[in-house]
Design a binder for these strands. Structure first.
Lengths: 226, 226
DNA sequence: ACCGAAATTTAGTCATGGCTAAATTATATA
DNA sequence: TATATAATTTAGCCATGACTAAATTTCGGT
């Protein structure tokens, strides 16, 4: 049934995951972007893309971008599931701070067996999001995204609950954790300077100001007025 | 302080661990034995041993055996600690059956950071043995071995408690688990045929017969007569 | 429509860690 | 003690996945 011919190398899995994530952020998966994402040279990216194209896991339009085929996306989703389940596990079960789980999960994700994945998912009660609020794809490869807006888009007076924090940098994550700006936190927008100014919000009893690039990384659900 | 010059590859760590374990079982670490242990060709072993010798992690007497230097043993002990802590964690925290933990731990042991190791050790309350009863080296590299005898050495009437099961084969492990022959189990020797015959023991309320090679893998502490 | 800068691909190199086949060394046995 | 056999090492090969430098293509701006 399954079309598993040969197991993919960890490097191949990394590329597929990177392509998936870049495409998911609405950007084109260009050679340069992938090189920056993966921390390798552009030539290495071209090289690997050609191998993945031979395996029918990506479609490559030379000098333009690269796209996942359905088979490639399936594998990418498995790796993303591994990664985010591991993040949830490391955070919830072992108490690792949320700025550390990404790096640890990255090293573990390629050696996680299906069997162990099942045990972890069961242990956690099949969570739907990781500690950053990123959705964990189901075993069948279904991804449920909830947030529609970022903090940067809200008008003063809006009440919202944080559902996802897109920031990656550990220093940023520690800072946001410090402020209480984590998934599930409720907040009220106090003020927003229109063109790229800082956003002022109240979270718990505290007032905090966030510069606009960071506010763009914080995804929220807006509370309906009652 | 530490003499960490370059991080070792997973392959190198595997070789050092294999040498440590082979030497620990009182056997000489020959090229053939290591090749069989690691599932690679003899030529590959010679090749890697030469690299490890350059790094001063092993001493190689060509055409004779190989021995770990103190530096090599230190690294081997770290990997063994990783491996056994992971086995304990997978078994105790995630409920993996003991015949599966070895394989899973083997894949994880090379990507376990010191930080995550600390969290796991703390979570488990710093265990001193893994699910097979093998000692977990301390962070300082101290190994405490307790058992002195195997089931095969006991005389009829002897009472003992199992402290370690040396068998590796998953089928054997499932069989022993089935019989209740696991670490901490108490047993009484009923009969032993002197030259390689089966050993008959009572464990819980059951009588079981074990062939001699398997009995040699079961390490016990003999209860003092009272 | 062209031209130069930026992006991309090609070409060639390197390290790692496997492999087989052939040569060499050690050892057991006659 | 000589020699066959087993163990080990050497030599040479291959795949993977990095890299740099050079060639090529695309594209924005005039």
């Amino acid at each position: 049934m399954a079309n598993k011919i040969a197991p993919l190398s960890a490097a191949m899995e990394d590329y597929l995951k990177a392509i998936y994530l870049v495409r998911g952020s609405a950007a084109a998966a260009t050679t340069m972007v992938l090189a920056a994402t993966l921390g390798v040279s552009a030539a290495s990216v071209t090289n690997m893309i050609k191998k993945l194209a031979v395996l029918k896991l990506v479609r490559h339009a030379p000098y333009h971008g690269v796209e996942l085929t359905p088979a490639g996306e399936k594998i990418a989703l498995e790796i993303v599931r591994h990664h985010r389940l591991l993040e949830a596990f490391l955070h919830d079960a072992l108490g690792l701070p949320w700025d550390e789980v990404h790096g640890e999960a990255h090293k573990l994700e390629h050696v996680l067996s299906d069997n162990l994945e099942d045990h972890i998912a069961e242990y956690l009660g099949d969570p739907s999001v990781d500690p950053h609020g990123d959705p964990i794809p189901t075993k069948a490869g279904v991804v449920v995204t909830s947030a529609q807006h970022t903090l940067a888009e809200l008008a003063p007076g809006a009440r919202a609950v944080i559902v996802r924090v897109g920031a990656q940098d550990p220093a940023h994550l520690r800072y946001l954790r410090e402020l209480g700006l984590v998934p599930q936190a409720r907040l009220v927008v106090l003020a927003c300077a229109p063109f790229g100014g800082p956003v002022r919000v109240r979270v718990r009893t505290r007032q905090v100001a966030l510069d606009e690039p960071l506010a763009r990384q914080i995804w929220v659900n807006v509370a309906r007025k009652k």
